[in-house]
C-alpha cells in the first residue's frame, strides 16, 4: 500500500533523510519511531504531499506521491503533531469543510461526519467553536479530520498527546480497530503504545532507517542474553548467591525487595536454565513465587539502536 524507496531530502546542505526505504502492507499498522530530529516528520510530510523530496520515490495506493499527488492526497488522512484547526469554526463546520475538500460526495457527507464524530467521541461539542475546546478535544477533532473521508491510508503523528489516560486508551483502541480496513503509519514517543498497536516497526535515526521488523523480532535481534525474572521468598543475599552459582548464569540483579525478592537473571543465549533455577530455589526450601522469561522491551531496542555510535 505504501512503498518508500531511497527517499532523500536535503535542507540546504543538511540531509534530513537519506536513502529511506520501507514498505507498509495493506491493512497493516506500522510504528514509525526515532529520536527527535531523526527525520520522521520529514518522511511523513513527503508521504502526505506537504513537501517534495530531493530524490527517491514514494507511492501510496499505487500512486506516485510526486507525479500523481492529487490522487494520493484524496487517499490519505494525516494527523500532524499539532492538529491543523481553524479555531473560529465550529467542530461541525470544520469537519464539513474537510469532508468537502477531500471530495466526500454530498449525499454521503452528513453520514460521514456523524460517524466520525461518534467514533472519536465529539458528540457533546460538535456545535462548539474549536477555540473553546480543551486540548484533548482539539486532538480528537484533529483525529476526526484525518478519518472523515474514510481514507485508505492514515498517518498519525503523536495521536495521543494531550489526552487523559481514559482518552488514551480509547484512541489506542480506535487505532487498533483501524487495522485491516486502513493502512496506518503511527509515529509516537510512547513505545508501549507501539507494542500494543503495531504489527511492525521502522526505526529511523539520523535520517536513515536502522531497523525494520516486528517488535518481537527486533527484541530477539538486539538481545545479547536470555533474561529471566525470578521472585523468591527467602533470604535475599543467600538467594542471590545460589542463583549466581547456577551454570549458564551471567548476571543476577536484585530488582526490588518488598518482603519478597525479585531477581533479573541474564544467562547465555539459547540456553534454557529455567528448570535449574527452579530446582535451586525449591531444594533450599524457599518459596518460588514467580519464574518467567523476559523479553527485551521496545524501549531497550530503541535505545540500543539509536544511541550506539
Amino acid at each position: 500500500m505504501i512503498r518508500v524507496e531511497n527517499l532523500t531530502r536535503y535542507y540546504g546542505n543538511f540531509p534530513a533523510i537519506e536513502d529511506v526505504t520501507f514498505d507498509v502492507d495493506k491493512g497493516e499498522i506500522l510504528g514509525f519511531l526515532g529520536p527527535n530530529g531523526a527525520g520522521k516528520s520529514t518522511t511523513m510530510r513527503i508521504l502526505t504531499c506537504y513537501m517534495p523530496a530531493t530524490s527517491g520515490k514514494a507511492t501510496v495506493a499505487g500512486f506516485d506521491v510526486f507525479e500523481q499527488s492529487m490522487e494520493v492526497r484524496k487517499r490519505i488522512g494525516y494527523l500532524p503533531e499539532h492538529p491543523p484547526l481553524y479555531p473560529d469554526l465550529t467542530v461541525d463546520t470544520y469537519l464539513d469543510f474537510v469532508a468537502k475538500i477531500k471530495g466526500v460526495p454530498a449525499q454521503e457527507r452528513k453520514k460521514a461526519i456523524d460517524d466520525v464524530i461518534d467514533r472519536v467521541g465529539l458528540q457533546d461539542v460538535r456545535n462548539r467553536t474549536i477555540r473553546k475546546l480543551s486540548k484533548g478535544f482539539k486532538q480528537r477533532v484533529g483525529l476526526a479530520q484525518a478519518l472523515v473521508h474514510d481514507p485508505e491510508v492514515l498517518i498519525l503523528d503523536e495521536p495521543t498527546v494531550g489526552l487523559d489516560p481514559k482518552q488514551i486508551i480509547e484512541v489506542r483502541e480506535l487505532i487498533k480497530s483501524l487495522a485491516g480496513r486502513h493502512t496506518v503509519i503511527l509515529s509516537t514517543h510512547i513505545l508501549p503504545e507501539v507494542s500494543m498497536t503495531c504489527q511492525r516497526v521502522v526505526i529511523i535515526d539520523k535520517g536513515r532507517v536502522v531497523a525494520e521488523d516486528t517488535p518481537e523480532n527486533l527484541s530477539a535481534k538486539v538481545k545479547s542474553t536470555e533474561r529471566i525474572l525470578v521472585e523468591v521468598e527467602g533470604p535475599q543475599d543467600e538467594v542471590k548467591q545460589k542463583l549466581t552459582s547456577v551454570p549458564g548464569v551471567k548476571n543476577v540483579s536484585l530488582e526490588n525487595a518488598n518482603g519478597t525478592a525479585r531477581f533479573v537473571i541474564d544467562s547465555e543465549l539459547d540456553k534454557d536454565i529455567r528448570k535449574d533455577l527452579a530446582n535451586t530455589v525449591v531444594s533450599q526450601g524457599w518459596g518460588l513465587l514467580e519464574l518467567r522469561p523476559m523479553d527485551v522491551s521496545l524501549e531497550e531496542v530503541f535505545l540500543r539502536l539509536t544511541t550506539k555510535e
Binding site: 506537504y50 492526497r73 500532524p80 491543523p84 484547526l85 481553524y86 475538500i101
Partner: peptide, 9 residues
C-alpha cells in the same frame, strides 16, 4: 493550516 490546506486535493 496553510501547509495542511496546500496538502489537500
Amino acid at each position: 493550516t496553510l501547509l495542511y490546506l496546500l496538502a489537500q486535493p
